[in-house]
Design a protein around this nucleic acid. Structure first.
Length: 492
RNA sequence: GGCGGCAUAGCCAAGUGGCUAAGGCAGCGGUCUGCAAAACCGUUAUUCACCGGUUCGAGUCCGGUUGCCGCCUCCA
């Protein structure tokens, strides 16, 4: 099946047709490192992570570049506030970002270039723009002249007139056109500066991505991505700068992910309504965070709530429980199936697995529809649980083949989403420990109460048994009695 | 003020021209259980914000109305 991608520039789903197959170049705008990252950033990183995984799965040789903006106004302002060197501040948040990505299981890109390490390329690019009169210098600042680039606005689908109509900010009177933007900023006292033909200064916000993408991927590459909020002005400006120099398209496909919202409002640092990744991973299992973020289509807004997060955690537990059961169906609790194993059942399971294999891939290939793909995972889960529940325990062996295939597929496809990467029993044990610690409970206490309850049950002292179970329920402990003993589970 | 997007069950959510509108959560009924829990089965949208149009046929395309959100300013 060919991959289809929604291109923000054309506003259509298009068949993916890379420039030099099987090579694929992808550039994603990373973060400006002046503060901790929140789950909105996590969504973007995870969404593109999955895209890269899928491309590789489909046999493409992907070169994945994700930059750090490590010099800009906000970094300088924040550094001043904290009385540290901007470089030190940037370094600190780069490290934190790397840690966040690692915890979330986001693959490291092939290149993670930083603006400050590409100053010569940036200056070279600005110089070219100045040489061809697409940019002009005023008092040590260099601006890009948007009127010199006729396609300006093509990406964000608006014209210069429309943008001016809505202008809400004061315009720097030195600009030839209100929408002109800085390529190079003159340094003020105390700011980090680099020497340039226009005097000491630093790069503007957009130019670094033009410089770094061409350095690592060439003048035209396949996919350029980032959050929706980057379409304008960042990507529009990048496109203008790059194309003004190369006269070639910058990217063949522009992909933009939707925002994470909280109570319907965009999560952002300026609104202060954000949840940091660090906070999230303290509270929830990283794979559950991935599952939540991938269970909505990447272009739609995703409204975060603790309830949604808990549902994702439950879903993840369900998948891991299924995997464990598929490996040891004979250990499954309360298997009271009474249907003799007949070829019908085997066929049913095999068909379910076959359907899943096809459907899952098809969903991802249709513009990375992870939400639909995850739906198929739930469907398979239900179907296999049904099979295990309806067949006589002793006859489960006959289903070993489809069960192994299903487990293998779930793990393989889980890899594409970055979930189900752990041995199921380990995961379930760890999850239990995590929750126990969170509740400040010990396994010994719980097991002692369970032993007492089982004694009461043996004596058919139901009142006492139920009383003990009540006490455990108050501790958020749920019991599952099985012929092989009582199993307990802790609730979030 | 300009531009764009979205509106699918109690909640979340997939679905962009045609078989019975995925999936999850919650609810209800059932199987199982001493009672539970878990799992499973059944059930929960003759209908996709509203009005009109195109079409043999529309949640899906077109026009209008209402509501929400985003971008136009730093932003994943």
């Amino acid at each position: 099946m060919p991959l289809k991608i929604y291109n923000s520039q054309t506003k259509q789903k298009e068949p993916f047709d890379p420039l030099n197959p099987p090579q694929v170049g992808i550039y994603v705008c990373g973060v400006t490192v002046y503060d901790s990252c929140h789950i909105g950033h996590a969504r973007s990183m995870i969404v593109f992570d999955v895209m890269v995984r899928l491309l590789r799965f489909k046999g493409f040789q992907v070169t994945y570049v994700r930059n750090f903006t490590d010099i800009d106004d906000k970094i300088i302002a924040r550094a001043r506030q904290e009385e540290v060197d901007p470089k030190t501040l940037a370094e600190k948040y780069i490290q934190e970002f790397e840690d966040d990505m690692k915890v979330l299981g986001v693959l490291t890109p092939d290149f993670e270039p930083r603006a400050t390490l590409h100053i010569p390329e940036i200056i070279g690019l600005v110089q070219k723009l100045v040489d061809q009169k697409a940019a002009y210098m005023v008092e040590g600042d260099v601006f890009f002249a948007v009127e010199k680039f006729s396609a300006y606005g093509a990406l964000s689908h608006r014209t210069l007139e429309e943008m001016q109509a809505g202008a809400r900010i004061e315009v720097d009177p030195r600009k030839h056109h209100p929408m002109d933007f800085a390529l190079w900023k003159k340094g003020k006292p105390g700011e980090p500066v680099w020497d340039s033909p226009w005097g000491p200064g630093r790069p503007g916000w957009h130019i670094e991505c033009s410089a770094m993408s061409s350095r690592y991927l060439g003048e035209t590459f396949d996919i350029h991505g980032g959050g929706k909020d980057l379409i304008f002005p960042h990507h529009e400006n990048e496109l203008a700068q790059s194309m003004a120099v190369s006269c070639k398209p910058l990217a063949r496909y522009w992909i933009h992910n939707g925002f994470v919202t909280i109570q319907g409002e965009k999560m952002s640092k300026s609104l202060g309504n954000f949840l940091t990744i660090q906070e999230m991973v303290r509270r929830f299992y990283p794979e559950a965070i991935r599952l939540l973020l991938l269970s909505r289509h990447y272009r739609s807004p995703l409204d975060y709530s603790d309830q949604a997060m808990q549902e994702a955690q439950m879903g993840l537990n369900r998948f891991y429980t299924l995997l464990k059961d598929l490996e040891h169906p004979e250990d499954r609790l309360q298997n009271k199936g009474n249907e003799p194993l007949v070829s019908e059942r085997i066929k049913e399971a095999e068909e379910a697995v076959g359907r899943f294999k096809e459907n899952f891939q098809q969903a991802l290939e249709d513009d990375f529809n992870t939400a639909q793909a995850i739906g198929h995972m739930y469907e398979l889960t239900r179907q296999l649980n049904r099979t295990m529940d309806t067949v006589r325990p002793k006859e489960l062996k006959g289903l070993a083949d489809p069960f192994n295939r299903a487990a293998g597929l779930l793990k393989q496809y889980g890899q594409l989403l970055g979930i189900l990467t752990r041995p199921p029993q380990d995961f379930l044990d760890q999850e239990k420990t995590r929750l126990l610690n969170k509740k400040g409970l010990s396994a010994e206490t719980i097991e002692r109460l369970i032993a007492e309850r089982n004694q009461a049950r043996k004596e058919k002292d139901w009142a006492r048994a139920d009383g003990l179970r009540e006490r455990l329920v108050e501790m958020n402990i749920l019991l599952k009695d099985s012929p092989r003993g009582t199993i307990w589970q802790i609730e979030e």
